[in-house]
Write a protein that binds this DNA or RNA. Structure first.
Lengths: 192, 192
DNA sequence: CAGGTGGGTTGATATAGATCAAGAAAAGAC
DNA sequence: GTCTTTTCTTGATCTATATCAACCCACCTG
């Protein structure tokens, strides 16, 4: 079983190699946390002050749109999590996060991460490539939501992340796919 | 009238300050170009090899979805332009760009930009912050397309970029807003 | 055990926006 | 200038998905 810091280091080093000394320094600013299922990680209206690495479990990001809970995304092992737009802009976040299972994660404070960017070029590079990776993922999702019908989006999610259907409720999946729970239910019936 | 290199430098330095020597070196890798209206900047199926700075005019990005031309976005003065996902991943692009007016731009090759990232921490930082900026813009657009009706999207675009309606055809705006030209026409009528 | 409480299903109806079709207007082409 | 092509508009349908409403089922909780 890989430790959380090993996982974090692997994840970082797929993008930018760090010297041992750099890693040890960087590592010292990350705090590991265990959070149980159903807890709020961040709140709407607050500036996100942490960058999270998810080592185990599932975190769900969601917003409120006229009283409705709308899922924005899910993070699993190896993913980053957090209201990243708020983290970057330092504006109040209009969405938040909750754990949908017990979760092991590590986090670093905004100020500490900025210091690390100043101090090490290798970490600055990691930051650039991390942002690029997020950007690519987001542009894929944009194409996804724009070019497919509800039915196609459902089928593609079934193909690509079947495990998700075990981990989170239908309602959350429905809002993530941009449809009502009723529609999702009917689509599932159709497939069975 | 600001020169293209002055514009480029300003744009870069809103994100990261460069020393004079760094700027002079960096600048030497950018090539200014004049392109006339209606030209293809990049092609579908090719790896994007340039990063573009638009100094004057409008560039439109678009994809083909079953024979239909779908606008992805528009770049004006001070924007970056290009198939950035392909530029980053080095995979064939599934969309392309054309000029919708005469355009003044400057571009830098992928390999040269990577060298600059290696060479200067300040440019690496600019790259990180540039990606962050793109990411934030993209996450706004995602919220936009997800949370508003066709009518609301139209009204918001009218508010935020009224000039666009002078610069590009209705059909292109319609596909950008994710609706048919007929629907856009009816919405315009409604507002008048 | 009875009685909640919330998620999921199913059916009936409503609606935003698409599609199809045809005319009007504007922009090029020669 | 006229002819042709493309863009825009308007009207008549059609359709995917939302909405509203009832019900079922699983699970808690006392």
């Amino acid at each position: 079983m890989e430790s959380i810091f090993e996982g974090l280091r692997d994840q970082i080093e797929t993008l930018s190699k760090l010297k041992e000394s750099e890693w040890l320094d960087f590592k010292s600013y990350w705090r590991p946390l265990l959070i149980e299922k159903g807890k709020q990680l961040t709140k709407i209206g607050r500036v996100e002050n942490y960058f999270y690495y998810v080592h185990e479990g599932v975190v769900r990001g969601y917003a409120f749109k006229d009283g409705e809970d709308i899922s924005i995304g899910f993070s699993y092992k190896g993913d980053y999590s957090g209201a990243y737009d708020s983290f970057l802009t330092r504006n109040a976040s209009d969405w938040c996060m909750e754990t949908t299972t017990d979760v092991k994660l590590a986090r670093i404070r905004y100020e500490d991460l900025m210091d690390m960017f100043d101090k090490y070029k290798s970490i600055e590079r990691w930051g650039r490539l991390f942002n690029a990776k997020m950007l690519i993922g987001m542009s894929r999702r944009q194409v996804e939501s724009r070019s497919y019908t509800a039915e196609e989006r459902f089928e593609r999610l079934m193909d690509q992340s079947p495990h998700l259907f075990q981990l989170v409720s239908q309602r959350h999946i429905a809002s993530y796919l941009g449809m009502t729970p009723e529609t999702l239910s009917r689509l599932r019936k159709k497939v069975r």
